[in-house]
Design a protein around this nucleic acid. Structure first.
Lengths: 163, 163
DNA sequence: TCTAAATAGTACATTTATATATTATATATA
DNA sequence: TATATATAATATATAAATGTACTATTTAGA
């Protein structure tokens, strides 16, 4: 892991050179970046044996968690935090792999409905034990109450970003 | 902003379908992803008028915060969380823009030393007020004590990811 | 000293992501 | 109804990031 102490050292130098620099907030931003990168890399590694990568897994899980089993490309884009143009490519690949299905919507013919195929569901059921284990391992340093607290603070942080 | 409530709804469905799914940790991971994306996008937007993007800004700030004003490409890669091959491209561009300087190291001729040019420093001093304002705005929902608490928890979380 | 292994950086090919423009359909309003 | 505007999805071109292989130099060990 990239030692975060070095980052803090750099922030100290930065504040010495530019005293107005908001050190605490900058620290938070860099922590988020480091954590995100680490989570992304570890997920990719865990998913490789199953032939998909992290963004693809995310799309599958969005569908798995949808209320009625289908989502439009733009809903998927919003849910997964991907640009809609990227969704076209990713869903193409997932279709090619036989993991999801495309079909035109009846009530709005501009829309497309995406859904998991039986193979897609089977793949998820296959890999979820590994992913659950990964998540458990990634969080094992935190007590439940710390997780709750962290969730609360992150939600508040995210809430403030919209304005 | 993508409403996080929808994400929570999807997680609820997921847990109903797959009860072993570690909902709390998955929530944390998705929060980190959402926040990271938002921070990244907002930074890019703020930096656009200055002719650089977020990754380029990060590299400049790593150099700005370095102890002696120089870093090697691999140190930069480590600090900024970029792959070394990507650093070559990014530093090429920053050189072309006249914002950083490349020079061979005297004691190890495999190494390259990168440093900010006067123009690079000037650009940073120019844009830092905007960036500081952005950071302040992004964190304005959090009290100082919440920021401290969040930093503590994120550090603990990051620490557990290395193992 | 000589050779093998390790390290630093980059070039090139490939993959992944984004921005912009285009097509088709739906909605609102004159 | 007719026309303008908005929305959904994608195609295409461009940009950004990654993986792999390669060169040059240094370090370690026979």
């Amino acid at each position: 892991m990239a030692d975060f102490a070095l980052t803090e050292q750099r922030l100290a130098v930065t504040c010495r050179r530019y005293p107005d620099f908001p050190r605490r907030l900058a620290t938070l931003v860099r922590l988020i970046k480091h954590i995100h990168k680490q989570l992304h890399d570890e997920a990719n590694l865990a998913l490789k044996p199953y032939g998909i990568n992290h963004p693809e897994y995310n799309l599958l899980m969005m569908l798995y968690g949808s209320a009625n089993g289908t989502m439009s490309p733009s809903e998927l884009a919003d849910a997964a935090g991907e640009k809609s143009a990227n969704i076209t490519r990713l869903t193409n690949e997932l279709c090619d792999k036989g993991l999801i299905d495309r079909s035109g919507s009846a009530d709005d013919r501009r829309k497309i409905e995406l859904s998991l195929t039986p193979q897609g569901e089977a793949l998820l059921k296959n890999l979820l034990p590994d992913i659950c284990a990964l998540l458990a391992r990634q969080g094992h340093h935190l007590t439940v109450s710390e997780q709750v607290q962290l969730e609360k603070l992150l939600k508040k942080f995210l809430g403030g970003l919209a304005d």
